[in-house]
Design a protein around this nucleic acid. Structure first.
Length: 402
DNA sequence: AACGCGGGGGT
DNA sequence: ACCCCAGCGTT
């Protein structure tokens, strides 16, 4: 039997999450602001609501409207996005804002939304349903998981994706779902976030228990949805350089190329990232000024990307006084995309992988410790300490030559 | 269809 | 150590 949309909405009216971008359910509420819905949906792409909430507020304070966002320089948007990951989202968000400002606002039609930069099938449906009440069901990871369970779909992801999406649209056959498309979508998200979770789903709390869910009826809720096995994540190695200017207290940063990994973000200058670790002399050929007395900072910094783990070593040096320092300073100034920034400003603008290098330098006393990206929450601080400690204890992958 | 693209929290 | 999250764009 098909799970009841009305039952899910009743559950949502009682148990919905309160989130900064959300219009609470019920009649008489103000219409949602499409800008806030769009911004939240882009931030929520592959990013948890807990991580998004504080960043959403901060972004909105800095860029309060489509027009304000469109008028901002791209570098300011990238900096505001630092630490959120998937930086193409920020570039597309900015490009989309400029299109919207030029065309006079948001289209309401899902197909027209889908054509905008950074808006795919999911986000188009989410904005159309939540901001405009269009009768569509946005299908994200939560919805795929819920649908696979309630309909007992055994085919593994990602192959089952189109089938699951079609089954999700089938809810619109029920009048209750058609009457409140935005709330129905958010009800599915909240069910997925709090009840029909990826591991150990809380079936006892589910409005679709007992008759609404094929997986629960068969005791298969822990094994659905199935997924095809993915291969192990390899390691790559890099060496980066922390060059300080004692005269100004600033450190040298470099802007990465606009596309690809960490595209358009700042970094500490470094070697390419490759399979084999870097010997000292080989690494130093990539230093911004190879002739300086570079000192290897003890330990390594590690950072996990989607498809590989990066292990980084850090070399530190300071510009010497006098003509030699001035020569290095002017050479680095002449290179395109190089900038000197105070360490605190650098930390705020750098992606997390690069912040790990600053953390490593701070443990060593080379730099003052950077402010955490977000205020500490229970559990978060412990997790951060674990990461730092693991970085320190990993040690150089290959011992220094005596 | 497969792959590249961050980062964090839960288990 | 691994999983997965309010996915999108490119090839």
């Amino acid at each position: 039997m098909t799970p009841s949309a009305a039952a899910l909405l009743r559950w949502y009216d009682r148990h919905h999450r309160d989130l900064p971008w959300r219009t609470p359910p019920g009649q008489g509420t103000r219409a949602p602001d499409p800008y806030r819905i769009w911004l939240s949906e882009v931030m929520l792409q592959q990013t948890t609501a807990a991580a998004v909430a504080p960043r959403f507020q901060r972004f909105l304070a800095r860029f309060p409207s489509v027009e304000a966002l469109a008028a901002a320089p791209e570098a300011a948007v990238m900096e505001e996005w630092a630490g959120l990951g998937y930086y193409a989202r920020a570039r597309n968000l900015h490009a989309c804002a400029r299109q919207l400002a030029a065309s006079g606002g948001f289209p309401r039609d899902p197909a027209a939304l889908r054509a905008l930069p950074g808006i795919g099938a999911y986000t188009a449906a989410a904005v159309a349903a939540i901001a405009f009440g269009a009768p569509v069901v946005p299908v994200d990871g939560n919805v795929e998981r819920i649908v696979a369970r309630v309909f007992g779909v055994a085919e593994p992801l990602p192959g089952a994706r189109s089938r699951l999406a079609a089954l999700a649209q089938g809810f619109l056959g029920q009048a209750a779902a058609r009457a409140r498309p935005g709330d129905f979508a958010q009800a599915l998200f909240d069910l997925g976030a709090g009840v029909c979770t990826s591991r150990r789903p809380a079936c006892a709390l589910c409005p679709w228990r007992a008759g609404g869910c094929a997986a629960e009826a068969r005791g298969e809720q822990d094994s659905l949805p199935r997924r095809v096995a993915k291969r192990a994540r390899p390691h790559r190695h890099g060496a980066h350089f922390l060059l300080a200017d004692p005269a100004t207290g600033r450190i040298l940063l470099r802007r990465r190329p606009p596309g690809g990994l960490l595209g358009g973000m700042l970094e500490l200058p470094g070697t390419p990232w490759r399979t084999a670790p870097w010997e000292r002399n080989e690494a130093l050929t990539h230093a911004p000024w190879p002739g300086l007395p570079w000192r290897l900072v003890p330990g390594t910094a590690a950072h996990g990307f989607t498809h590989f783990t990066l292990d980084m070593q850090l070399y530190a040096a300071a510009l010497p006084a006098g003509p030699a320092g001035e020569a290095a300073r002017s050479a680095c100034r002449a290179a395109a995309g190089w900038e000197w920034r105070p360490p605190a400003a650098a930390a705020a603008a750098l992606p997390t992988a690069m912040r790990r290098l600053l953390d490593l330098a701070a443990e060593d006393g080379t730099l003052p410790r950077a402010e955490p990206l977000r205020p500490a929450e229970p559990g978060a601080a412990a997790a951060r300490r674990r990461t730092v400690r693991s970085g320190r204890n990993t040690g150089p992958r290959r011992p220094e030559r005596p």
